[in-house]
């Protein structure tokens, strides 16, 4: 970082203006963000995930996630040969500090699975909310109105993926917002921003130029628990059959 004080003085006004534009919603990336123009999801490329836990830490820092609860977490699967029905899964502290190293297993395989809210288009959690405190936004993100939620936890019970929790201090439902405060400003989510291998990629399914479309056309992707028919929009590349 060889910026001298002089450089900084020259740069500052420009940087300040640029940062202001980010805070206001990056003009070049999202000119007048319109909710109906987007349909958000995510792509998880399992073979790229190295289980570093960057995403979990970034999510907690970005969204003030309380300790012991997770908007996103990483699981490590260990599957013995053909024994798909009995995977051994761990996620120590949500994978926040990574995973212990393991030696090669000649009879099995290891892999990481990052999890987050699937931003379901037919979400069971919003269906059961008695008061309309959680909802799918017009751009396809499942959000919680924490000023309206009464904390009944019915949505927590209804989520097949365990993505929701009751915030212990706020006493309302809390969950991944797909960094709604970032994606509406033309930024990517905190977890995608810090993912060193590109295992997580924010996807706008309504944007014909989004690389997600080319990817989906050329890869075998799956959603979690497809039998739940939730219209999940988090797509997993090379999802193993043992993952649940």
């Amino acid at each position: 970082m060889n910026i001298t004080r002089r450089h900084l003085m020259l740069l500052l006004p420009a940087a300040a203006v640029a940062w202001e534009s980010v805070l206001a919603g990056t003009p070049e990336a999202s000119p007048n963000y319109t909710m109906t123009g987007h349909w958000w999801g995510m792509l998880i490329d399992i073979p790229k995930c190295i289980g570093c836990g960057n995403c979990v830490r970034a999510c907690q820092a970005e969204n003030d996630v309380p300790d012991g609860f997770f908007r996103t977490w990483v699981e490590r699967y260990h599957v013995d040969d053909w024994n798909l029905a009995n995977p051994q899964v761990i996620s120590p502290d949500g994978g926040k500090e990574g995973f212990p190293s393991v030696a090669e297993d000649p009879d099995g395989k290891y892999f990481f699975v990052p999890k987050l809210c699937n931003q379901c288009a037919d979400s069971p959690c919003t269906q059961v909310c008695p008061v309309g405190a959680t909802f799918i936004s017009p751009d396809g993100v499942v959000l919680v109105d924490q000023k309206y939620c009464m904390g009944c936890a019915y949505c927590v019970q209804a989520c097949p993926y365990g993505c929701r929790y009751i915030h212990p201090q706020k006493r309302v439902a809390d969950k991944c917002t797909l960094c709604y405060h970032r994606i509406t400003k033309g930024l990517t989510t905190a977890c995608c921003e810090v993912c060193p291998t590109g295992a997580r990629q924010l996807a706008d399914l309504k944007n014909p130029n989004d690389p997600i479309h080319a990817f989906l056309k050329t890869h075998s992707v799956q959603v979690l628990k497809p039998q739940m028919a939730t219209g999940a929009k988090v797509f997993y590349n090379q999802l193993d059959g043992s993952v649940r």
Binding site: F70, W73, G94, V156, Y161, G162, Y165
Partner: peptide, 10 residues
């Protein structure tokens, strides 16, 4: 293994 958010009962 429990999903991490499932450990406490709601």
């Amino acid at each position: 293994y429990m999903y991490p958010n499932e450990v406490s009962l709601y």
